[in-house]
Design a protein around this nucleic acid. Sequence first.
DNA 1: CATTGATCTAAAGTTAACTTGAAGAATTAC
DNA 2: GTAATTCTTCAAGTTAACTTTAGATCAATG
Lengths: 159, 159
Amino acid sequence: MKKIPPLRLRPTGLTIGQISDRTGLSPSAIRYYEEERLVHPHRTDTGQRRFERADIRRLSFVMISQSLGFSIAEIRSALAGLPSNRTPTKTDWQTISEQFRQKLDERITQMTKLRDQLDGCIGCGCLSLSNCKLYNPEDRARGRGTGPRYLMGDSPTTE
Amino acid sequence: MKKIPPLRLRPTGLTIGQISDRTGLSPSAIRYYEEERLVHPHRTDTGQRRFERADIRRLSFVMISQSLGFSIAEIRSALAGLPSNRTPTKTDWQTISEQFRQKLDERITQMTKLRDQLDGCIGCGCLSLSNCKLYNPEDRARGRGTGPRYLMGDSPTTE
DNA sequence: CATTGATCTAAAGTTAACTTGAAGAATTAC
DNA sequence: GTAATTCTTCAAGTTAACTTTAGATCAATG
């Protein structure tokens, strides 16, 4: 009787080490992202993580978003736009990329606006700063905690 | 003999509470900024902080810089461009504002570049991501710690 | 001059985004 | 078949930028 070799249809998935090598993310970061529900690897029967090829894209998206100043919470909600029941298609990615790009545009616009206001404010060297209305605490790049309540409020008394 | 009234040339300075009111910063944040050497109030003989009017501008600069994503270390080094022996003049502020604006421009350029690359990468919906070279960990908005070593590296094998 | 409110210092707590370490289990390599 | 890797979890540590708390002192007011 011939011995039938174990049928390996295709590898079960990528290990965390392989994903780490491909993305440049450390294994600990990847585990953290799983905890934060940015990726959802499945497990082998012995409990090891196995990732899909599509997760590389997912993690790349996470990394790019982060480099642009988005928080994990924001990224998670962006990724929520992807289907959970199947591998995202080209169209799926296009959709969330567009939303993402929109947010990015807003952020760039905001920065540019602030920069221009700065030109007319601190940049001008005027000593009162009284006209400056750079008031927009909500839009701070990585606003955390309570933080400043408003920006600029020097009354033009002396000087 | 006539009693000579105490000569009050001008108030000794602003209290931390007054600075807090004018800038919108909490007293604790202001104390923290002193610790971080972003402001240098002097002290009364009983140990209370007294600020100069010019410190309001200084703190405003700190707040704006922060809202644009600069770290305290970066702000400190920017402020180092101001004279320490005298009250900064209009020209002093213009000088550091220009340097600041330059950094801001760089940051905006960088963001825009990334956004455009994104368009041709994730944005395109292509499934390989293999051409993407969004590699610039140094320029991450608030890059902290070790972090990702590079961005995007999916080889165009299957899918 | 007694009370109320502001300020002081020092130490500990907070959040985000991870890393590091320990100790054990699974896989791979020879 | 054993040694070397790689993986697992869980807990604790790290950095930035502050806040919170406590107990004490200072300043302003009726």
